[in-house]
Simulated scan of single mutants.
Amino acid sequence: MTGFFYMHFGDDVPQNIEKEYNRLLLHEQYLEKKEQKYRIQTATFEDVITVCPDPATLPINEIELERERLHNERLKYLPVALNLLKADYPDLYRLIVEYYYAETKTTMADLGKRHGLTTETVRYRIKSAKEKLKIYIIMHENKE
């Protein structure tokens, strides 16, 4: 690669445009040198498509498939876990139902005002309720 040559356009082109054009040329030359130095490679769409075919033709990741199956099994047990939560911790159950199962969107601040709690307390109690639900579901899995 040769050195940089300043391009003159004559009196027809304003001086600031000429300077900006040459600045961009110099920057482009710098990027090309950098690309060669660090071996940065760019790929075209055709190069990528030959290496990575259509995702629909790829085999399904078995681990991801197992995770999805386990998640669906846990969702099936969620109503039972909610009933256990209702029996053991009715206040946590009420918060979970009002937050996640309300017909209109409810914020934690709204729940706090409704129950006389701070937003942080509501957040903590909902987190605690979710942990208890998780424990109920895992206990159910271990029984089977």
Rank of each mutant, 00 (worst) to 15 (best):
F5T: 09
F5E: 10
M7G: 00
D11P: 09
V13L: 11
Q15V: 07
N16W: 09
I17D: 04
E18I: 10
E20A: 14
E20H: 08
N22D: 13
L24R: 09
L26V: 08
H27K: 14
L31F: 14
L31T: 06
K33P: 04
Q36S: 11
K37I: 06
K37F: 03
R39S: 12
R39M: 05
T44G: 11
F45V: 14
F45K: 14
E46R: 10
D47P: 02
V48A: 14
V48W: 13
I49K: 15
V51M: 10
L58H: 01
N61S: 04
E62D: 11
I63E: 13
E64I: 08
L65T: 02
E68N: 04
E68Q: 04
R69I: 05
L70V: 15
L70F: 11
H71P: 00
N72R: 13
K76T: 10
K76C: 06
L78D: 01
L78T: 04
P79T: 06
V80L: 06
A81C: 11
L82E: 05
N83M: 14
N83L: 12
L84Y: 15
K86S: 04
A87R: 06
A87K: 13
D88C: 01
P90K: 01
D91T: 02
L92M: 04
Y93N: 06
I96K: 06
V97M: 08
E98Q: 09
Y100I: 06
A102I: 03
E103C: 02
T104Q: 10
T104Y: 08
T106M: 12
T107K: 01
M108S: 01
D110T: 13
T118P: 00
T118M: 01
T118Y: 02
E120L: 10
E120W: 14
V122F: 02
K127Q: 11
K127S: 13
K127F: 08
K127Y: 10
S128C: 00
A129I: 00
A129E: 05
A129D: 00
K130C: 15
K134R: 09
I135S: 10
I138V: 09
M139G: 04
N142C: 03
K143D: 09
K143R: 11
K143W: 10
K143S: 09
E144K: 01
E144M: 04
E144S: 05
E144H: 08
